[in-house]
Amino acid sequence: MTTKFRSMQQVLWIVLVISYGTLALPGCSSVHVAAKQASKADDTFETTVWALWWGGSDPVESVDCSGNGLQVVSTSTNWLYSLCAVVTLGAVVPLDIEYRCTSTPLQGGDELGAVPGDNQSGDHQSGDQQ
């Protein structure tokens, strides 16, 4: 009986150590969706969203990129967020979101100093493929 109790204690210790270690780790899982070869604007925006009631109230984030596209969207979670989801049986699921817009597309492309309309170098419209 005593031996069984000791091995249970050992298991408990291992669980505690692993839990503490997980908490102590600074980084947590994250997912990134990035536009391919897109230029970056200066700012990254961060927010925490809360999905509630098993899909009954899913958050919708509105993003203003001044007409440009999104360069990257990242989501991340952490140990506490996971615990929150477990404790509430999935009713409350927090998630961190980061996003960044693409920068101003390239402008111009014609010969510098040329009279507008006098296109000496062909059709040179360019810009990021959003």
């Binding site: 200066d42 101003t104 111009g108 010969e111 510098l112 000496q120 040179h124 360019s126």
Partner: peptide, 16 residues
Amino acid sequence: HDSKPLTYWGSVGQSS
């Protein structure tokens, strides 16, 4: 000064 919004470009004409 964040220079990234300044993205104009063009060719340098032969005459220059």
